[in-house]
Design a protein around this nucleic acid. Structure first.
Lengths: 205, 205
DNA sequence: GCCTACCTACCGTCCGGTAGGTAGGCCATT
DNA sequence: AATGGCCTACCTACCGGACGGTAGGTAGGC
């Protein structure tokens, strides 16, 4: 049986995801937990702290999951494939939490905001390292590393927006589509020359 | 000189973008316009209506911009390239509005919500048509059309989140990166077979 | 006897929205 | 040219209600 604090967190995740942080009231969270509003403050010091707690735990677990999946691998392409699949799978499995962690940053205090941004940077840097190594090894097409990393991550986050757990697509099928799309987009090959149309070689700018 | 209604709209766009719809109050909009709160209601019937107006105008102009750019073109690859560039450019030029149109749907009344979703569907269908034709013509790799369109659009929306108008990258450079990435991700080629690394076909695990 | 996990009752603040008033420009009639 | 009336674009003052949060109390288990 889950503790009341866990129940509060679960209910808050659901409401923040469905209605947004600012549109969700403490009273409503309490009501869905079957307790009074004041009792929330026994478990959490403030509304903002519930939000922060959700985001922090989510970011920690997201990063840990990626690290565990990458552990021991060295092949660059394999790393990127694993990273994309790991990212997509986590975002589909933990749809509500990741959505909150991506879109409700504005509800945080300045200090907590900085902390979450720091954790996110750390996570992004794992992807950037893989891209950088891939370009250095001549496996990936040269382009701005940060922009590529943002592109890949936003792309995969997208899944969490429209994905319906009971829909026609299983999680792994989606992860595979994204993996293929990303790897094809990154890898060097003579496709680029034909793709750019009028101007022959897309300069790395 | 802009009318007061235009000023209100501009201020609202800025605040909704910076703080979010629910975290923005009518009083604050009024203050930044240099008028009293009640005067807002001379120009708009409700707070929600300001949000709806912003979203509707944005979606209309976004679609019109895409249609104008595609006008007369028939080559499929070219169409997709143009569509991506058009989408990215609009999202970077009208960063605040598109961000609001993408993330503040929950502030709308049910009727207005349906209306915006309808407009968005219409826009997405333009991309889906290009993808479908590309697959039929054997130019693009076969995959789920809806998922591909969502992937492309989310990917390009991403730019509007981190893009800074005064940053080091000009709009067209970003648009080109995205265009190349998308086209390389879509096009057929023998890369896919080689991409999976050790095991020939990435098992869905 | 004390700590945990709740409760009831209440606080001040701010919210979206409304009622009703008014200054000043425009316009038709005399 | 002067008058009267109406419309535009604001204003002040206020409403009920919901908000996040607090004070203080209490039942029951260790």
């Amino acid at each position: 049986m889950p503790s009341m604090k866990d129940t509060i967190t679960t209910v808050a995740v659901d409401l923040f995801h469905r209605k947004g942080y600012f549109a969700t009231s403490i009273s409503e969270i309490a009501r869905q937990c079957g307790i009074q509003k004041a009792s929330i403050y026994y478990h959490y010091p403030s509304k903002e702290n519930i939000l922060f707690h959700i985001q922090q735990v989510t970011m920690e677990e997201l990063t840990a999951y990626l690290r565990a999946n990458l552990d021991g691998r060295t092949d660059i392409e394999e790393c990127m494939g694993v990273a994309v699949r790991s990212h997509v799978r986590f975002h589909l499995d933990r749809q509500k939490e990741t959505f909150i962690a991506n879109s409700e940053l504005r509800g945080l205090t300045p200090e907590h905001y900085l902390e979450i941004v720091r954790q996110r940077d750390e996570y992004e840097q794992i992807f950037q390292r893989i891209i950088r190594e891939g370009i250095a090894a001549g496996v990936f097409t040269a382009a701005d590393v940060k922009i590529l990393s943002y592109a890949i991550l936003t792309l995969c986050n997208g899944g969490a927006i429209w994905f319906k757990p009971r829909g026609r697509m299983p999680v792994d099928a989606i992860a595979e589509i994204y993996e293929n799309f990303v790897l094809r987009g990154l890898k060097v090959g003579d496709l680029a020359a034909a793709a750019a149309g009028p101007d022959p070689q897309a300069a790395p700018l």
